[in-house]
Write a protein that binds this DNA or RNA. Structure first.
Lengths: 232, 232
DNA sequence: CAGTGGTCTAGACCACAAG
DNA sequence: TTGTGGTCTAGACCACTGG
């Protein structure tokens, strides 16, 4: 050992270097924090921070008492940014617009009701909106809002501010799930997005909660050619 | 103020509670770490850890000197797990299998060459493989490997271990990018995946690097109905 | 310039889980 | 039982950046 590593990022880089070197192979047990701290000439907490970050990234497996191992199957974690659509479009240099196509207060269909865990007779607010980039269809939003969870939504004019954006500002959620898929455009989707029935469309379904009560369930269907990108 | 918060997760929960309460609104400046530490009855580092985690999640904006604000447009960060396909299938209770359909050593097409930033005359290893779940097509993998970066790959029998898995174990990368999209099945894709031309297919393109040299570029095309899911 | 977050240190105790 | 990572504390200095 020659160099010393004064901050957690330097420690992290050194560990990554050893993984790349194949000094440490997948499955290998590496020295414990105290020993590494001594070797690196820094405090144990510093090593801890570096290794914890690598474990969060999926490159290390750490268990109390069992120690730290190089992950045998580094589950790559990709963080996708799901921005407010307006900002996504404006960030790409486009002019944003949006049309509220439908607003109704009704009993949701069984599939939605079940997913949102609403009682059988519950009403919800249903919105359909089209997001535009430079006046071209960008994405179709089909959304259900649980007014029990967000009563204020009943009085908002969603033709002025999109539900997407209003909810971000006014209905922070505690947790949610997201699902990405590909589907062939239905006739209705094709009409709204000005494309052809059967075209492959990228679809994102999101469902958010405050603790155990459903807030909103939204299905975004993007115009053909849409890509979701990120770095690893 | 009544309670004290002894660990960073408790501090985090309290901050989240105040965001939900709308005690702190989007855009608000919140007290600095030292003050919060005093209020919460804990060390400043503990507050720091809690707020840093929330900032990583996109709920807070933090800047030195400017302080900490509730994010006005909480860019939701979703972490998708990209597991080794075999584990994904086996984790779902399926029996994994895979067929190597093509293996060739040739000059990649211009689009691939450009994306991998290979010199015009460079060769690369091209693999096409089908991943099976319970003997049904699950995903079609089309991969290019830069042998300059991973010379050992030339001697591996990828009909025994999938390239997907071999590379994970033998070619750790430093960075990469990923792109998700939806496309209509070409005739070749439909044939391989035993589906119909034009079906909407979920597609993932990944490109990985070791520093500035390209390691591999892969396009995974999933059988119809595939969903990528995650929590927020 | 001065206030804020970012980080380091040394020492301590705790929680978990392997043997 | 005991070794490991997980975390807390108090105090300190640093880096960045707003005013």
């Amino acid at each position: 050992m020659t160099a010393t590593f004064r901050n957690w990022q330097a420690v992290q880089d050194e560990v990554l270097r050893r993984i790349h070197d194949r000094t440490w192979l997948p499955g290998d047990l590496i020295p414990n924090e105290a020993d590494l701290a001594k070797e690196f000439g820094c405090a144990r907490v510093t090593v801890n921070r570096a290794l914890r970050a690598l474990a969060d990234a999926g490159l290390l497996d750490r268990r109390r008492k069992a120690g730290t191992r190089i992950a045998t199957h580094p589950v790559r974690k990709v963080t996708l940014n799901i921005p407010v659509i307006r900002l996504e479009i404006e960030g790409g240099g486009g002019a944003y617009g949006h049309n509220l196509l439908k607003r109704e207060h009704k009993r949701p269909p069984a599939t939605v009701r079940k997913r949102m865990r609403l009682p059988p007779d519950a009403d919800a607010l249903h919105l359909v909106a089209l997001h535009l980039s430079n006046a071209q269809p960008h994405a179709l939003e089909d959304r259900w809002i649980n007014l029990e969870a967000v009563p204020d939504a009943a009085n908002v004019d969603f033709s002025i501010i999109s539900a997407n954006e209003w909810l971000v500002l006014n209905a922070p959620f505690t947790n949610g799930d997201i699902s990405l898929s590909a589907t062939n455009a239905t006739r209705a989707e094709a009409a709204a997005l000005q494309t052809t029935t059967g075209d492959a469309l990228f679809k994102m379904e999101r469902h958010t909660w405050v603790n155990d009560t459903s807030v909103t369930f939204v299905r975004m269907t993007f115009a053909p050619g849409y890509r979701m990108q990120s770095n690893i």
